[in-house]
């Protein structure tokens, strides 16, 4: 039985005459075009993901919310957590940059794919960390409310809610913060992991394919 691929190989090597031919100038133009590779995409999207959570603090209502912390006597706790948070964030950015620099098109296909996935994973862990911080913030607020004596005043709703018993009011606030916190985290996380999945689907499939061979 003739090897089908040998037969195909002969034909393949005769194909040259049918191929398009680009001129020197056409190729010269191309080298100045911007790359639209997946690495570029991952880089820009990751930068956005690093910055986005911090932009939230620029929204005026968010800044006002910060005063809630001092009313709830959480200032010192918040300060400590913030310092820790920024240390971790800088570590993530450093790690991301280091891994990003390691991506080289001159590696073999498996190594290249693995390096890109590793870079992307750094951002994934960062997002998981940020989401946990969001949850933690809500948790601290709930604890703050629990120990607070004057809940209606803190949220500037004194008059409207003065008839409600303070104890009941406390539980209502705590429950709503818990619900909002969880919803917020789940929605943000959902959007993120959808994006993450779409962006790396092809990479993961091919990486899996290359790994499958190693059994």
């Amino acid at each position: 039985m003739v090897d089908e691929l040998e037969f195909l190989k002969k034909d393949w090597q005769k194909k040259d005459e049918h191929l398009p031919k680009l001129s020197f100038d056409e190729i010269y133009q191309m080298i100045w075009k911007k790359s639209s590779s997946i690495v570029k995409w991952i880089f820009y999207i990751s930068i956005i993901e690093f910055i986005l959570p911090h932009l939230l603090y620029l929204i005026p209502s968010m800044r006002n919310n910060l005063s809630i912390y001092s009313d709830l006597e959480l200032t010192n706790v918040i300060l400590g957590v913030s310092i820790l948070q920024y240390l971790v964030i800088f570590y993530f950015i450093y790690l991301f940059y280091k891994r990003y620099r390691e991506i080289s098109v001159l590696d073999n296909a498996k190594q290249l794919t693995s390096n890109i996935l590793k870079t992307r994973k750094t951002v994934k862990y960062y997002v998981l960390f940020s989401l946990s911080m969001v949850l933690l913030t809500f948790a601290m607020l709930i604890v703050g409310i629990y120990f607070s004596d004057n809940i209606a005043e803190t949220f500037e709703m004194g008059e409207k809610l003065s008839e409600t018993p303070p104890e009941k009011l406390k539980w209502i606030f705590m429950a709503s913060f818990a619900i909002v916190g969880v919803l917020f985290t789940v929605i943000l996380g959902g959007i993120y992991f959808l994006l993450y999945g779409l962006l790396t689907r092809k990479l993961r499939r091919n990486y899996h394919e290359l790994q499958k061979l190693e059994v």
């Binding site: 190989k9 393949w12 073999n108 296909a109 499939r205 290359l210």
Partner: peptide, 28 residues
């Protein structure tokens, strides 16, 4: 074929030996 299989076939059709194929793809 999938992306990886295509690469294998392509290198084969280009008359590359298995040493070069394995090196390019990062498999044994």
């Amino acid at each position: 074929l999938g992306d990886i299989d295509k690469a294998l076939v392509f290198l084969y059709l280009e008359d590359k030996d298995y040493a070069e194929i394995s090196e390019t793809l990062g498999i044994t």
